[in-house]
Design a protein around this nucleic acid. Structure first.
Length: 223
DNA sequence: GATTGATCATGC
DNA sequence: GCATGATCAATC
């Protein structure tokens, strides 16, 4: 499939039809070359699935399938179903954030409904040999939504009072704030301790591994 | 093994 | 630089 799916069920069906395929097979079906390494192609797997499922492509800060209200995310897992990495969600706004509510945030929108595509992606496997798992649609449970909002509010509060440098990867139970930039020299505007404008490294929101692991457990029932 | 800072490609 | 797609890799 390369045309945008017309419905949620159509998208899910299309995604599940990829289950069990290797990335080489999916790439071949879409006339794409498989890189030898992800070192210089870090988003390659995500881009491949976007193409395979007909996502819009582009850099708009919106869901991948806005008409369906669905965000597409690939997640690398080991053979036991455990995520190998944290999951990047979106960049974090560092200015003009007074009054910003969780319900109107970009991250809440993106996480409101996610089509997870697990990828058996152990490093011992060549990129092309990595395999598509069983895709599934997820919406945060009330408790998950609560944890996300709590962490978001804690982190955004610190940012708003100029304490961004006090935030570490341990801040938050399920969300993490970490650099998200071209390199360590990238700078963007933020709020200083005295409320003055400062330059700092751009940050992004990431989902911690235990949180995404729980989502997978909840879906596949191996507890 | 977990943590977390650093980095790569691409299109504006 | 920002936003998309993330993973790499040094250090704890």
């Amino acid at each position: 499939m390369s045309q945008p799916p017309l419905s949620q069920s159509e998208l899910l069906t299309a995604a599940q039809a990829l289950s069990g395929l290797t990335l080489t097979q999916v790439a071949h079906d879409n006339n794409i070359q498989v890189p030898e390494s992800l070192l210089r192609n870090k988003g390659w797997i995500g881009n491949l699935l976007e193409i395979a499922l007909g996502a819009h492509a582009g850099s708009k800060p919106t869901q991948d399938f806005p008409e369906l209200g669905i965000e597409l995310k690939t997640i690398p897992i080991d053979s036991a179903g455990k995520p190998l990495e944290t999951t990047f969600v979106c960049v974090t706004p560092l200015t003009s954030i007074t009054g910003l509510q969780w319900s109107q945030s970009n991250i809440a929108n993106k996480l409101s409904k996610v089509l997870w595509v697990p990828i058996l992606s152990e490093k011992r496997l060549a990129i092309g040999e990595r395999q598509i798992g069983t895709p599934f649609l997820w919406q945060p449970s009330p408790q998950q939504a609560y944890l996300l909002q709590q962490d978001w509010e804690e982190i955004m509060e610190l940012i708003s009072i100029g304490e961004i440098d006090a935030i570490t990867g341990k801040t938050g139970q399920v969300l993490q704030l970490r650099p998200k930039a071209a390199n360590s020299k990238a700078l963007t505007n933020a709020i200083g301790r005295d409320g003055q404008p400062i330059k700092t490294l751009p940050r992004g929101f990431y989902l911690k591994i235990p949180f995404t692991h729980d989502i997978l457990k909840q879906q596949f029932g191996y507890n």
